[in-house]
Amino acid sequence: MTQIIYQRSKGLKDVETHYCPGCHHGIIHKLIAEVLVEMDLLDTAVGVSPVGCSVLAGNYLDCDFVEAAHGRAPAVATGIKRVLPNHLVFTYQGDGDLASIGAGEIVHATARGEHFTTIFINNAIYGMTGGQMAPTTLLGQKTTTSQSGRDPLLHGRPVRMAEMLSTLDGMAYCERVTAANMPELNKAKRAIKKAFTLQMQGIGHTFVEVLSACPTNWGMSPADASAWVKSTMSQVYPLGVKKDITAEEKP
């Protein structure tokens, strides 16, 4: 008898991704695909992809997808979820999309308590456009537009979206995870599954921030980049549950 320990998820289309070697987008796509298959939502789920490296996420995940204008995925998801309240609706947004140009959209979608899930991929840099400084870039981190490292007096300080959005009453569940190593990868999958489960219960906005590596623009090997996420990035962006109204209800 042969037991399958792991095989390619049926939630992924049988195509190659355009992502760079070692990019965490591929890993996070897999986690979402696995959760959709486990929850039997692949046929009804609707994703909204951002502008950025993951603009083509709909080519890889085998569920319905809509492409939104830059930063406007929460507005598009709001419309879809209100028209199709029984469908799982999620946005998949990078930090350039969500924390920069789309910061206003996500704040108000959360404040309204819109019943969709946001998967926020934070890699502290603009990937697709060539490694420019993002709102989430760490202090001292070198990018093509902060070549001496991010200076707080000149460029400001990193934005912690998960903590910021957790203060809003519309947020039901907010957790920051990473796919940088095996234990954290398992936690990330659990967080995505919990967010999707709570969304289907209709209790409010659910948000999962995933700290992610961009080996190409960070100028690191994929293994070093994953280690850097855990050692350095998670110091500035602490991992863990930021808000969970279902836990608060219990004594």
Binding site: I4, I5, Y6, Y19, G26, L185
Partner: peptide, 18 residues
């Protein structure tokens, strides 16, 4: 199965033959 789970491109399949 760690290699297969972490692979961003789903290259790896891990089987266990009893």
């Amino acid at each position: 199965g760690s290699c297969a789970r972490v692979c961003p491109d789903s290259v790896i399949t891990v089987l266990k033959h009893e």
